[in-house]
Amino acid sequence: MTRKRYTQAINEALHEEMGRDPKTILFGEDVALAVFGDTRGLLDRFGPDRVRNTPICEATIAGMAVGAAAAGYRVIIHMLFSNFIYTGFDAIANQMAKLRLMTGGQIDLPITVLAVYGGGASQAAQHSDSNHPVLMNLGGIDVLVPATPGDAKGMLKTAIRNNRPSFFLQASGLGAVGGDVPDGEHLVPLGKASVAREGRDVTLVNVGSMIRATQNAAKKLAEAGIEAEIVDVRSLVPLDETTIVESVQRTGRLVVIDEARDMCSAASQIAAVVADKGFSALRAPIRRVTVNNVSMPYAPNAEAAIFPNADDIVRAATALCQPEVAAA
């Protein structure tokens, strides 16, 4: 086990997987200089055939990923900010998500799309979306939101290696955050949530970028006598419904924390699953801590007001626990 930063863990995964399979190629905007640090050193090591800077043309980057994968390559593309997915969306939603079905399974599409998502750094509305719900709704595409360096490395390696199209979404606020990463070959299965903290009173389901706020909230809640269980969802498609529902069966209460806009967020889906499959265990309504249905503003104070934080989570969880807390 070695302590590494989130970005460094991603960089290692890319180096290892490109080293492992010579048919793995990577292209996208500014991958040579690695503006986020994640693709650093790949061009020098693997050369300009396999690592290419593209023009700024997301529609073609995403479409080429489909064509090159259909023609036998294992493809990694970098979309930079996840907002830029929108300019490449035909190739993602109409081609990448559907080609395997439409061809009756004649091909696999081993494609991994890297993109950095989320706000919190005054990047303003067009560089701050948490747009995983848009991708979750497509069907046929894995949506991964690792929250720790260890999971980032292990899940990225699994995603590159399997034959499914996947979006590996990197939380913009987590890039410099450190964490333990197992040494040697480290693969994390997809579609498995992890219980990051055990607790008896309330389940906090974290979606990707909100992990620190969720952890801080759990600490504050503990100080107030409420023991929160944190389920880090890790992967939204496939979604580990079992781990989430089982946790709620233990605690009877659920708060889902998601940086997406509230409407049709990942939190909405998780709430629906628990309402459907864990209804009898619920002792209180389900709460979602999300972003209002607004775009992220620029000004630091305005963004902070919109951005979900630990206090929002504490408030939501405390309200759910109120009768018992009062009785105790």
Partner: peptide, 15 residues
């Protein structure tokens, strides 16, 4: 819809 896909296949062909 085929324009970028063909370009990707052409990249594969070149490689």
């Amino acid at each position: 819809g085929g324009l970028a896909i063909a370009t990707g296949a052409a990249l594969a062909a070149q490689l």
